[in-house]
Amino acid sequence: MLVSYIIAARRSIGRLPENACAIRSVVSSPLFDTICRDNGVEPVCVLTGFKYIGEKIKEYAVDGSHTFIFGYEESQGFLSGGYVRDKDGVAAALLIAEAASHYKSFGKSLYEALYDIYDKYGWAKETILNIKIEGALPMQEMSAKMAALRASPFKTICGTDVVRIRDYAAGTVRDIKTGAVTSTGLPKSDMLFFELSDGSNVIIRPSGTEPKIKIYIQANGADSVEVDQKLDTLAAFKYFG
């Protein structure tokens, strides 16, 4: 909702750059990209962690290829403007208050404004599963589980075909049907991204700070009921034996 508001607000006062870009982490909602593209803003995807968003801001400030207007990651980190290179809760709170005031002038709440976005672009929701790793050597156990999954990746998840697998450790994107392999275009990271035929995504990576494997589930659909059903189904799947 914030990126939609920022784009509209900047455009209304003639301050939306022609080379505007907005940045999200790879595990954040792809609805962000849809909103950006529909409004002529370049969506940019980076690895998890605000340092990667900061690196892109610095890169664009040097080469002038894009003008950064907004960045976010799924763990409720937001940034507008390039003067801070990390998540900025104070500025985010002010932006939310500004957006609330704007929508109120049209007789709408933030909740209703969010529904307007869903009505226009389709429903999208996400959830996270945390698989706690027990034992004396959790890092080795997490590495072993990820290696086993790479050696024998899912072909289907809950009866839905996997159409592409992004292996960020190898830096590859493999199309299951054609076998074509392309580059992720991002630095290497221990993460697997499964794209499903119904538009859902399952992303699996070990936590960098805790003994657990994080599973991000993204789903979309025509309405809230359909999306919730997809999330519930994917969340119930047994990802590790």
Rank of each mutant, 00 (worst) to 15 (best):
Q218A: 08
Y60W: 15
I57Q: 12
V46N: 04
W123G: 00
L94T: 06
A148N: 02
A222I: 02
G14V: 08
E210P: 08
S189H: 12
S200D: 14
T178S: 15
Y118D: 05
T172F: 11
R205Q: 01
G159L: 15
I23P: 11
G71A: 13
D63R: 05
M142N: 02
A61P: 03
D88S: 04
A136M: 13
G81H: 11
L47I: 01
A93M: 13
R85W: 11
E226G: 12
P211V: 06
L114V: 12
A9Y: 13
S12H: 02
S152L: 14
D190H: 01
Q218S: 13
A91Q: 06
I7W: 01
A61F: 09
F237S: 08
I217E: 06
D190G: 00
Y121K: 04
G49A: 04
E134F: 00
A148H: 01
F32P: 05
Q76S: 10
Y83D: 06
S224A: 09
H102Q: 01
M1S: 14
K125V: 03
T34C: 02
V225T: 11
L137R: 12
I176R: 09
A61W: 12
Y83P: 00
D223L: 07
K214T: 06
T48Y: 03
I213F: 11
K145E: 01
Q218E: 14
F154Q: 01
I131Q: 13
V173T: 13
W123S: 01
Y103S: 10
E98L: 04
C45D: 09
E134Q: 02
M146H: 03
S197E: 12
V162C: 08
S152M: 12
G77M: 03
L186G: 06
I204G: 13
R37E: 07
Y5D: 05
F70H: 04
R174E: 15
S207T: 06
D167R: 03
M1V: 07
L192K: 02
Q140M: 08
F78E: 00
P211Q: 08
V225Q: 10
K145G: 00
D161Q: 10
S28E: 15
K125S: 11
V162D: 06
P30Y: 08
I204K: 12
L186N: 07
I69R: 08
D116Q: 07
I213V: 14
A92E: 10
V41I: 08
G221L: 07
A136V: 12
Y121D: 02
P43A: 07
T160R: 14
P153M: 04
L110H: 08
A144K: 05
S143H: 03
G171D: 09
I203M: 14
L192I: 04
V84G: 00
I217H: 09
V162A: 10
V26I: 14
I23A: 05
E55I: 01
N39L: 00
K132A: 05
I131R: 14
T127Q: 06
S12F: 02
G64H: 15
E195Q: 15
I96E: 05
Y103Q: 09
I217Q: 07
P206N: 13
K108G: 07
V84N: 00
F237C: 08
E42Y: 04
L95S: 07
K238M: 14
L196M: 11
K108A: 05
D198R: 11
Y83E: 06
